[in-house]
């Protein structure tokens, strides 16, 4: 906030947000009817998604134009930094709910189900982890940590490094290096996703490990699934940034959008480490 006399940029009225609301409305009503057996609901969901994507594109398009048009100074930049940080914090809390569920199931619910009192209800349930609970008898194999997951850890960690290298390159004005490292990062992200998809296929077809495989399957797929979803978003965001790099956007001293996406990517990375340790390994 070097110069407090400057004016804060307050954008003029905008048409895009209401599209977002319409999109959300379509998605919610579509999903609710689809889930309750009305097949065409899925098309309403898709339409909603499309509207939402349109809104994002136009809205962020405006922001990019304003940014490149020099409307944002230091003051606005600080706002963006606070905004992104607290957004990531809220994402952390979202994952915390699922990690909490995993913790609760493993350390409290399952031992409780196998306790003396509960012999009355589940006489032959032995508390252990992983488990699909006292009723689901279908045998399944839990996911091993040291195959694809370990490889994926490596992939994500190196993608964290490549983003950072790209950032350095950007700060030093080396555009070619910047583009190259961004490209690496995107490729690593996509590879991660492919492995993850393969792993899911493997779980379903070979391990008999499904979303419906009791509490183990539930926590496994929900945690890794939401993480995968965030990696997907992150990859899309990285791709946009890559495109903007190629279009010549960003300056060595002013490139918050780049940093925001990099932060997000690191956040996705850290969540994965948590997953690797608590879901796959221990």
């Amino acid at each position: 906030m070097s110069d407090r006399a400057q004016h804060y940029y307050v954008p003029r009225p905008s048409h895009w947000m209401i599209f977002g609301s319409v999109g959300l409305f379509c998605m919610a009503t579509g999903a609710a009817s689809w889930l309750n057996g009305w097949e065409p609901g899925r098309y309403i969901v898709l339409a909603g998604l499309a509207i939402l994507a349109f809104m994002m594109a136009r809205w962020f398009g405006d922001v990019i134009r304003e940014s490149e048009g020099g409307k944002y100074g230091r003051w606005e930049d600080v706002s963006f930094r606070w905004g992104m940080s607290w957004f990531i914090f809220s994402e952390v809390m979202f994952f915390a709910a699922f990690f909490g569920a995993l913790y609760y199931a493993r350390l409290l619910a399952v031992p409780d189900l196998g306790s003396i009192d509960n012999k009355l209800l589940w006489p032959d349930f032995a508390a252990q982890w992983p488990t699909a609970g006292p009723v689901f008898k279908d045998p399944f194999t839990p996911m091993a940590a040291w195959g694809i997951p370990a490889l994926n850890t490596l992939l994500l960690l190196s993608s964290g490094v490549t983003v950072t290298l790209a950032h350095w390159a950007l700060k030093e004005g080396k555009r070619a290096q910047l583009a190259l490292f961004m490209l690496f990062t995107v490729v690593l992200g996509v590879t991660f996703l492919c492995f993850q998809a393969y792993e899911y296929g493997h779980a379903y077809s070979d391990l008999n490990l499904k979303l419906s495989t009791g509490v183990y399957g539930s926590t496994f797929f929900m945690l890794t699934g939401f993480h995968g979803f965030h990696v997907t978003l992150g990859t899309i965001m990285l791709t946009v940034i890559l495109a903007r790099c190629l279009a010549g956007h960003f300056r060595p001293e002013n490139h918050f959008a780049f940093e925001a996406v990099a932060w997000y990517w690191h956040f996705v990375d850290v969540v994965w480490l948590g997953l690797f340790v608590f879901v796959y390994w221990l």
Binding site: A109, V215, F221
Partner: peptide, 16 residues
């Protein structure tokens, strides 16, 4: 979607 977070039969817990 058949998950069992809150269903004891699958090892979950309504109290969770």
């Amino acid at each position: 979607f058949g998950t069992s977070f809150f269903n004891a039969a699958g090892g979950g817990d309504p109290v969770m």
